[in-house]
Amino acid sequence: MMYGYTWDTATPLAYAWSILPIILIGLTVTLKAAAAGFAIALVLGLVFAMLRRSRFRSVSWTTACVVEFLRDTPLLVQLFFLYYVLPEYGLTLPAFLTGALALGLQYSAYTSEVYRGGIEAVPRGQWEAATALNLTRMQTYRDIVVPQIVPRILPAMGNYMVAMIKETPVLSVITVLDMMALANMIGERTFEYLVPLTMVGVIFLILTLVCSAGLHRLQKVLPKAGIPLR
């Protein structure tokens, strides 16, 4: 029994049906973690992208190194690092937040590259025109650059979001009760892993297929709305 649900292992189908509510509770945790993680990645990635464009060599270079480091080391180890090391410095976060932070950190390395590509794709003439109109740097970003970048980076960002959803099961190792963790717990208690693990796999497959189809649609709709991709 878990969360007040009992399960029935008589047949695989009955078993699957009886644990579905629990798995779906896990799904909400998975989605929340991915949403929180992606929000962090979007903000942090933008910060990194801006810092990389800094006029100070030392700042841009350090940022480049940090981004490279985040990108080239495993999420799992970053997760352990945050989970065990942060409390040593007095920062004790709930496991869920630690997990979201780790996801966000790792993916900020990717999103910063997407932002950078998007910013660089804005023609030089646009910056020059903004300067000629005497816009401040802030106004230039807000009114000229961002509106041009957003549609360009949407598809790539969408792909990373799907990728991140698929990485959330890793959070189960730091006691976040996502789909994966719950499926494992059910497996441990019933000695029957095949059904719960397969269900998690199928749900991920549905999730990614739906998201990919949505992205595909977005890529078709945006150009029609007069917004060029690329």
């Binding site: 698929k166 990485e167 959330t168 099961p169 890793v170 189960s172 994966m180 494992n184 497996g187 029957e192 892993y193 095949l194 693990l197 397969t198 998690v200 796999g201 199928v202 991920f204 497959l205 990614t208 297929l209």
Partner: peptide
Amino acid sequence: TELFRGTSLLVQLFWFYYALPLI
């Protein structure tokens, strides 16, 4: 391609490690 891209690696790993031996 879709099966192994669409499901999470950790799920695949546990599936092969815990679930397959059961069959």
